[in-house]
Computed example of a mutant assay.
Amino acid sequence: MRPDDWHLTEDIDDFLARAGDFLRSRPALHNTPLTDIERLRTRGAGAPGTEGTFFGRLESEGEVRAICYRTPRGYLGLTPLSAEQAGTLTTHLAALGYSPSGVIADHDTATAFAEAWQRGTGAAPVPFWRTHLYRLGTLTPPLPRPEGRGRVAGEQDHEQVVRWCREFCVAVGESVTIDLIDADAWADTRFADKHFTFWETPDGVPVSMAGSTSMVGGMVRVDPVSTPAPFRGRGYAGAVTVEVSRAALTAGATDVVLFADPANPTSNALYQRIGYVRVADFTGYKFS
């Protein structure tokens, strides 16, 4: 594998024309690149929030084998790579003067790239994010079902959605998004283009919330799932997750996925009880 097997461009339409089929070939594993790149595409080249982005594809024997992309905040997103492929990418990026602030990918890929980048540049990788990826198998609503119903959030619910998303970020330590929400820059957060559903008690009080992405390549990602502390332990999170998962299937999704914090055994056990199957682990590194 040679560094010049990587082809980089800032033209998102050209990139998708060449690599779109590859991304859609494994929608669950590629869920984050699919949603990130679609969001950049809909914003349009040069729009606020798209600065500094580029897209790369690894080709061999006329086939796309992997992709990379740089987000506006400087992180490099990758689909699965071997250690050799990660090494050639670091060589190529360094030669072009690119310096990502970090990398996010499946655990083995992110670690291989981080180690290769450290060898080549001396920048020490610091892990900041670890998660399990789950894909929905057979949806199995939990029993007993809590009283209440699901309700799609509307414009009148915006303040509550923003507040609960911020509380979710505080709980999981997602400092970048917390800062954006505090600065009243909701449109720049990863939540702004998602669809939200509440679980409400019979008297109409929202007690849990789940978000979901728009469908891309047949894939919908459930994110976030948040229940305020006073309402936990009553089955509301499971009920609202089932609600948005079923809605995704009804809309025609072939892959419904979600991420779960490895340090939270309660949520991991819940997702498995309702039919989600763990398929991979993901890691993010920051570079010093």
Rank of each mutant, 00 (worst) to 15 (best):
T79E: 04
T79A: 11
T79D: 03
T79Q: 06
P80A: 12
P80T: 11
P80N: 11
L81K: 00
L81W: 00
S82P: 00
S82V: 00
S82T: 00
A83Q: 11
E84Q: 14
E84D: 15
E84Y: 02
Q85P: 03
Q85T: 02
A86P: 01
A86F: 04
A86V: 02
T88N: 03
T88H: 09
T88Q: 13
T88Y: 04
L89N: 01
L89S: 02
L89W: 04
T90K: 06
T90D: 01
T90I: 05
T90R: 09
T90H: 05
T90G: 12
T91E: 15
T91W: 07
H92P: 02
H92R: 15
H92G: 03
H92F: 10
H92A: 15
L93W: 09
L93R: 12
A94R: 14
A94I: 10
A95P: 09
L96G: 08
L96Q: 15
L96Y: 00
G97K: 09
G97M: 07
G97V: 07
G97A: 05
Y98N: 10
Y98T: 04
Y98E: 15
Y98S: 11
Y98F: 11
Y98I: 05
Y98K: 11
S99F: 06
S99I: 06
S99H: 10
S99G: 14
S99C: 10
S99P: 00
P100T: 10
S101K: 15
S101L: 14
G102N: 08
G102E: 01
G102D: 01
V103D: 06
V103Q: 06
V103H: 08
I104Y: 14
I104C: 11
I104S: 13
I104Q: 12
A105L: 09
A105K: 05
D106E: 15
D106V: 01
D106T: 04
H107R: 13
H107C: 08
H107E: 14
H107I: 06
H107V: 08
D108E: 13
D108F: 04
D108P: 00
T109Q: 08
T109N: 06
T109S: 14
T109H: 03
T109P: 04
A110L: 06
A110G: 12
A110N: 08
T111E: 15
T111A: 15
T111K: 14
T111M: 11
A112H: 13
A112G: 02
A112C: 03
A112D: 12
F113V: 01
F113S: 03
A114K: 03
A114P: 02
A114S: 13
A114Q: 09
A114C: 07
E115W: 02
E115H: 07
E115R: 13
E115P: 01
A116N: 05
A116D: 05
A116W: 05
W117D: 01
W117S: 06
Q118R: 14
Q118L: 08
R119Y: 00
R119V: 07
R119N: 10
R119E: 13
G120L: 13
G120D: 11
